[in-house]
Simulated assay, not measured.
Amino acid sequence: MLIVRPAGPSDLASLMELAVLSGRGFTSLPEDEATLLNRLTLSEASFSGAIAPREAWYTLMLEDSETGRIEGLGGVRAAVGVARPHFSFRVMTLAQFSSAINTRFDHKALVLVNECAGWTEVGSLYLRPERRSGGAGSLLARSRYMLIGTERQRFSETVMAELRGYFAPDGTCPFWDGVASKFFRLPFDEADHMVMSTDGQFILDLAPRHPIYVELIDTAAQEAIGRVHIEGEAARAMLEHEGFRGSGLIDIFDGGPTYSVPRDSIRTIERTEVLAAMKGDPADAPERLVSTASLGGFRAIRAKVRIEEGVATLDGGAIDALRLKSGEMVRVRQ
């Protein structure tokens, strides 16, 4: 059985392995043990309630209960842009009009903004390539919304997701080469690593302060604006299914799009109800997404659930996987 559970420092080796597999451009999963250990320590403190809600960053591991192997991870960051600005480019239209020649010009431009401050971010969604079918991705992705639903007041009214930007078949990043590198003047991998391993001061120091006219950048970089990495297409489809839509914001490094949605409009949150759990035979009941109802001991699985008169009946394996006692509350996605 696949179980989504909180991550902690003991998961460092598995997280490092996934970081290596994830490849270039996966900013939230750098190949750096110190950075990953800090993240796992922060996750443990977040689930235990040891830090302020807005500073929490919850990391979830997808574990195969039969083999013990970690098959993927996902994350929920309670609020971005709190300790430091969270910069994006907004793709805007700047209109210019000349009465002398009675002509109007509309120019697309990239404008540096800090609009996401305080938003909750769902991200870090990564699965081993061999697990990208059979519902594992859906379980992992939706478990993040189940987590948010357990204690909504801990999370922002707006939820965002940043999708990895486009990389060419030769491994280059057209948006970085055509735009961002002109300001940061570092190799992409070095700048990408610095995002997570430093306080980000270099972004504050070097990011462009004035609009960048899209017509003035090369064609390859223009075409990469808002384009998703080939490995991110499935993630985008899942986001759209939950109600996320493009926000008009893009990443300042790789040009990938930022999607957003009102927290209470996320489909999984809307269609989830809280029920008392009971151990029994669900018989031919349908499989549903089910999680614990508390943040501290959060766990999520897919299992057969029979719902009758406010009671969710699950078999012994599901009850054990969720570490529940009969009568405890669960959240069930309809």
Rank of each mutant, 00 (worst) to 15 (best):
L60M: 14
A237C: 07
H86R: 10
E151Y: 04
F167N: 00
R331W: 08
Q222G: 09
L216E: 11
G49D: 03
G246Y: 08
D32E: 08
E63T: 09
R236K: 15
D192W: 00
M329Y: 14
A7I: 09
D205I: 02
R132C: 06
R333E: 15
V82Y: 00
Q222L: 01
V261G: 07
M146H: 07
T120C: 01
A136T: 00
F87M: 00
D199N: 14
H229D: 15
H193Y: 10
S10Y: 12
R39Q: 14
A56F: 04
L42A: 12
F155Y: 11
S65R: 10
Q334F: 14
G49A: 11
S138D: 10
R288F: 13
F167V: 07
H193S: 09
V91S: 09
F89W: 12
P6W: 07
S181C: 08
V76H: 02
V305S: 01
L275P: 00
F87H: 03
G134R: 10
D170A: 14
H241G: 07
L324P: 06
V332Q: 06
L239N: 06
P282S: 00
L73G: 05
D251I: 04
F183K: 02
R131F: 06
E328C: 12
I217E: 03
I203H: 01
E215P: 00
A56V: 07
G280S: 14
P85L: 05
A283S: 12
V91R: 06
T198Y: 15
A117F: 01
L140T: 08
R263L: 09
D64S: 07
A224T: 02
R164N: 00
P211Q: 03
R333M: 14
